[in-house]
Design a protein around this nucleic acid. Sequence first.
DNA 1: CGCTATATTGACCAGAGTCAAGCTTTGTGG
DNA 2: CCACAAAGCTTGACTCTGGTCAATATAGCG
Lengths: 248, 248
Amino acid sequence: MPKQFNENSPEPACEFIACEDCGLYRLCHLASDGEDPSLSNALIKRRFVLRRGEYLYRQGDSFHAIYAIRLGSTKTYIINEDGRTQITSFHGPGELIGLDAIEAGYFDSEAIALETTSFCEIPFSHFQELSRQLPDLQHQMLAIMSRAILRGQQMMLLLGKKDATEKLATYLLSLCRHLDKDASPTPPFKLTMSRGDLGNHLGLTQETICRILTRFQEDGIICFQNKTIHFLNHSRLRELASKTRADR
Amino acid sequence: MPKQFNENSPEPACEFIACEDCGLYRLCHLASDGEDPSLSNALIKRRFVLRRGEYLYRQGDSFHAIYAIRLGSTKTYIINEDGRTQITSFHGPGELIGLDAIEAGYFDSEAIALETTSFCEIPFSHFQELSRQLPDLQHQMLAIMSRAILRGQQMMLLLGKKDATEKLATYLLSLCRHLDKDASPTPPFKLTMSRGDLGNHLGLTQETICRILTRFQEDGIICFQNKTIHFLNHSRLRELASKTRADR
DNA sequence: CGCTATATTGACCAGAGTCAAGCTTTGTGG
DNA sequence: CCACAAAGCTTGACTCTGGTCAATATAGCG
């Protein structure tokens, strides 16, 4: 039950991601900047908000739109026949969700808001119509999907070849990329997912996540208090993310 | 150094995959069946053959084409900073290779022939030109990439949540899908990759692969002799591929 | 202000990795 | 065509990382 998002709501607009920083920007920009000004805003149908725990879509839902996060975060996971789940990605502002359902026409995965989260919805039919007029739009979409495939491959490497310490260090580093570079120590960062979710995503248990976070803190690499985390030593984290040693 | 493939070579043509069974079919078919007959064969630039161990492309090579396998098999892998590799997929007849390089414009992965392998090459520029005239071509490409993303997600589930037995059973089952359904026992199937490669792909060691293959044979599920394998009990394999038990 | 979900920490254990030895297959050159 | 080398496969013994189970502690929520 997504409720319509009110542009004039009391929520602080400044925290929303700027369109220029959105993964959709090159799509939207092409559309609104095209030769025909009537294309303006043709891509985005609506914006809406979900609260923590609400589903963006569920397994079996039919696919008709892709989504971009304006503010907030989600987790996306697939479900095995026996009920086990694998969180395939966490998404934050500017990231796209739903690309995996284009072929089948329905979702095999589920997406849930981890906190109050605001989305842009791009109906796939809008995208298809527009892209007949703007071939570059097509290319941008291919680029976006190509990037999603690359991310999947990096995830396979992490899950298949890294030990627990490397996994967590790698993930924490990927969070830093979104933050101000180089700044060390960084401003506080909020982990919106639970330890269990983080473990699930990385192929570990929540207990292992706890233990390693504690160790990183003892070693002065991070400083955390529940969900809030400071990164104190980026370069050490980078070393830990891929220890040099013989190939397995 | 790919050598030009000779259509009139003495190799048995019957073993090549039929175009109708190729992952590219819907692309090629659209192109050669379009309203403008001059589009015929505009997609495929050439066909060529690689021998075992020869590279289709290497890390850093610039991207200009995607490839379809006509006959044979390849492995594709990515390389971590520390030199560890993760085989992200094995490809057989009808499958597409190179989709991960579209965004960057160069390959971050490498692809190697596991045996003598014959390819169709589709220059990406051909595809882009044609797709301006045939919007359906674009949609087919999105579908193909969407499927690649799904495969990646299934791989994450396998690597992150399954134990060694389940991993191998799942992989063996995926091989069966390509074979004649239901037939049990199936005709002999050739594993073209080494035990080490198979282990690498599944997040295991070659020793573990050996031990589990031996166990499967003792249990009458498969029968193998070196690289040749017969599937004797599909349903048991299906049970092993996802043991019912509590979610981790 | 209690209740529930989440997080932390410890003790113990098992699955898969490592190391090592021997075997088989494949490929090469004489 | 054979001999030898190299690569790949198999099996066993042992180790160790990270999972499991369990007991608190803490945070967030109504």
